[in-house]
Amino acid sequence: MGNKVNSTCETCPQYNAKGLKKLGLNTENVDFVVALAGNPNTGKSTVFNALTGLRQHTGNWPGKTVTRAEGAFEYNSQKFKLIDLPGTYSLLSTSQDEEVARNFILFGKPDVTVIVVDASRLERNLNLVLQILEITDKAVLCLNLMDEAKRNNIKIDTRTLARDLGIPVVPTSARFNEGIPDLIQTINEVATGKIICKPHRIKNVPKNIENAVKTLTNEIEQQYPSIPNSRWIAFRLLEGDTHIIEALKTGELV
């Protein structure tokens, strides 16, 4: 499946161990902060556990991780802190989970955001992916549950997907530890700037909204030339997000 079938030994401990050290709860003095986002029940916690060696509860239930879980791992002697965000379908609404996830990606400014998606329900999952790509341009798509997709006869052209989204795509089956080494490698490359992402920007916005967003984006960029995600801020301002208004006032966003 996909582009990067490495060796038959992909799942054996020796392979996994190379360069990777699971650090569990020890999250001090990290070099990079990595956020795990995604729809509920796509395997975020499973990925989190695979990377950190922790045993976060995973359940076949939409809506399990409500509080933020943190852990760490080391790769090529660089320390990564990993944060398992609550699963959400979107970042546009007002629910508590969405607020936690949205605020962390926006204000926490993670070095990399790993977006875990369900390979057999890609279209539905892309809704969230596209929103996240408006906020941050350092992201990795973790195409999880590949085994289920295979079972359902779904094939995904990861190269096309990576090109269209403008971020690296790594197919995994986290439950069976497949693709995890690749994922770590890719996270590392994005964090260190070896891979530069050119994330997709939402195109099909209705004309009247797009015009308003453009006007507002220009205005914001004039005032804050260094802001990386002015378009997202414009979306949120039009939505009436008081948190963003507050953040603009305090200068938290720049």
Binding site: Y89, S90, L92, S93, T94, S95, R124, N127
Partner: peptide, 11 residues
């Protein structure tokens, strides 16, 4: 309100 948004978010 939230009900509508949730439906939209769910596709």
């Amino acid at each position: 309100g939230d009900r509508r948004r949730r439906l939209l978010d769910l596709g």
